[in-house]
Design a protein around this nucleic acid. Sequence first.
DNA 1: CACGATACGGAACAGTGTTCCGTTTGCCAA
DNA 2: TTGGCAAACGGAACACTGTTCCGTATCGTG
Lengths: 200, 200
Amino acid sequence: MADIDSGSARRTPRKRADARRNEATLLDAAAAAFVSSGVDAPVRDIAARAGVGVGTIYRHFPTRADLVVAVYRHQVEACAEAGPTLLANGGAPYVALAQWIDLFVDFLVTKHGLAEALQSDDATFETLHAYFLDRLVPVCAQLLDAAATAGEIRPDVTAFEVLRGVGNLCIGAGDPRYDARRLVELLIAGLGQPRTAGPR
Amino acid sequence: MADIDSGSARRTPRKRADARRNEATLLDAAAAAFVSSGVDAPVRDIAARAGVGVGTIYRHFPTRADLVVAVYRHQVEACAEAGPTLLANGGAPYVALAQWIDLFVDFLVTKHGLAEALQSDDATFETLHAYFLDRLVPVCAQLLDAAATAGEIRPDVTAFEVLRGVGNLCIGAGDPRYDARRLVELLIAGLGQPRTAGPR
DNA sequence: CACGATACGGAACAGTGTTCCGTTTGCCAA
DNA sequence: TTGGCAAACGGAACACTGTTCCGTATCGTG
């Protein structure tokens, strides 16, 4: 396996220098465009920023979603890895869960339009959706399980639901009259009520 | 003044017959298109359904949002009017609030793409957003106030936040793995915790 | 240094919402 | 009944998306 990999890796060891350079430039340009115009920044704008043609973007990133994933991959990975770490810190699982959700919310609210894109039913963003889910659902599930086992939250909620709900609540953060983080806290607080809903 | 008004009203009492007919046809066609393709149904599709040109749509409804508002106005009004009614029914304000939210969720989840459009930062849907807010925020505020006064929910939550949060949670209902109604229940349950979040 | 594979640029395509204006049509006065 | 004109219509055209395609330029190697 290692032989085959290194062999094929030797045969096509590295892309042409200009290609590698362009890919890096493109990632920077996209990141900058996402900050100033949101993840919906027009492809042509990103190409112009990077000083390349639009064809070059599509050669490196088959679809917009792939570009978005590439730009945010590091941060998503960091978030995913933070889950087990928080859980291992020794505190109550519910606290770890709340902290992790907070991390996730921080990530989403600082990326203008990302939450919207994530929930978009546009087939274009399917890849994006899938990547986030693949990477984060298991982590979230682990935290939920721990908290449920400890009896701290109701046991009948899925990681998918929580992630999606939290992601949805982050849509439109940026509006000063809308505090996404607070509503997420409310939702997570609701999780902590094992019995019937309602007061008293 | 009254003379001028009634005079001008008399002078142009009703639009031309074909115009009135087309407006009605258009509303029907749009409603049908929204059901089968969501509120994002292409303008050309709606025009084709109604058997008119796209120009005719824009003459009657300056923007897509106006068309959407016109189609759903009746249901939004009904929802708005249900608020005071539920509150007057004599039960606990919190129960009335929960029932009203349920009504709102019912409305949103049955309109494919409406929740998405409502939270879209697209300037096109500004009118839509504004209409829903104008009409429903006061109703929601009344219910929240009543429940807060009764000590049934925390008093520090605004109607705008709740409506927006609930609206956001309704995005993507339709996915079988995502139960929007349940998450809304969780959120509303979180509302019922006047003290600090978290278990015990 | 020359040649072939690789990568590039941007025109072209398909699909949006919206605008614009030549043509048709309904209505009212004569 | 009919003439005329304001109102309304249809749909081509525009501006803006994402995406594809291919002639051209460039890189790296023998």
